[in-house]
Computed example of a mutant assay.
Amino acid sequence: MQKAPMTVEGEIALREELHHLIKEVRPTIIEAIATAREHGDLKENAEYHAAREQQSFTEGRIQDIEGKLSNIQVIDINKIPHGDRVVFGTTVTIINLDLDKTVTYKIVGDDEADVKACKISYQSPIARALMGKEISEVVVVKAPSGDVEYEIDNVEFI
């Protein structure tokens, strides 16, 4: 199985979430289940069933994170020779040539992607079009509304 690329920040965020779930959330749920059990009849005990459902969700998320962490390749952008070429982890400023609008994206792994935070997956159409290209090159991105031309304005290793 091929390792999924992830930035250092993405790995840190996953590890922090995992730590939080294991050290804080899990014990709280176990305590809630124990308290609900004390109330007697488990068949009609809503608190018990809610705590068990939360426990199931939390354990699933813990397994999901552990699985992801076991299958990632962390790419530290600071250890890559800097240049004008777009690579995984770079922050790219592009200009939509039709609208003359500038936007900046950081190219990250699938689990880190968050368009609102201007982080796009390396597998997204825009990122795939940009990868390997250099400053001032024009790329064409196939969009549902038609082809969109972007010029690479800047590439940052931050």
Rank of each mutant, 00 (worst) to 15 (best):
I77L: 12
I77W: 06
I77P: 04
T93Q: 08
P81V: 08
E112M: 06
I80M: 09
P81E: 14
N71M: 07
P81Y: 05
V115F: 04
V108I: 07
L99E: 10
T104F: 04
L99M: 12
D111C: 07
T93K: 13
N78H: 14
D110M: 10
D84E: 15
K101Y: 05
I80S: 01
T93R: 13
A113Q: 05
I94S: 00
G89N: 12
T104S: 14
I75C: 04
V74N: 06
N78Q: 14
V103Y: 06
T93G: 01
F88D: 07
I72C: 05
D100R: 01
V103L: 08
I75D: 02
A113P: 00
I94E: 01
V103T: 11
S70C: 02
Y105V: 02
G89W: 12
I80A: 05
K101C: 00
V103H: 06
T104W: 04
D111Q: 07
D100Y: 00
K106N: 05
V92I: 12
I77V: 15
D84K: 15
K106D: 01
D98Q: 09
D100Q: 07
L69T: 14
T93P: 06
L69E: 10
F88W: 10
V108R: 06
N96Y: 09
I75V: 15
D100S: 03
K101F: 03
N78I: 08
I95K: 13
D76R: 13
I80P: 08
D76A: 11
N78C: 02
L97W: 13
D76Q: 14
I107A: 03
G109D: 11
T104I: 08
K106Y: 05
I107V: 06
I95P: 00
D84N: 15
K79Y: 09
P81A: 09
I80Q: 10
D110S: 10
T91I: 11
D76G: 10
D98W: 00
N96D: 15
D114M: 03
V74T: 13
V86T: 11
D100M: 04
D98C: 00
T104M: 08
I80T: 14
G109L: 09
D84F: 08
I95C: 00
G89A: 12
K68P: 01
H82A: 15
V103Q: 07
H82T: 14
I107P: 03
D84T: 15
F88R: 13
D100G: 01
T102C: 02
K106T: 15
F88A: 08
L99R: 10
K101D: 02
V74A: 03
V74P: 04
T93D: 05
N71F: 01
L97H: 11
T102N: 06
V108Q: 07
T91R: 13
E112H: 11
L97P: 08
I72L: 12
R85D: 07
V87I: 15
S70D: 07
I94Q: 00
I107W: 03
I72T: 13
V74Y: 07
V92F: 05
D100H: 04
V103W: 02
I94P: 00
I75F: 06
T93V: 09
G83F: 12
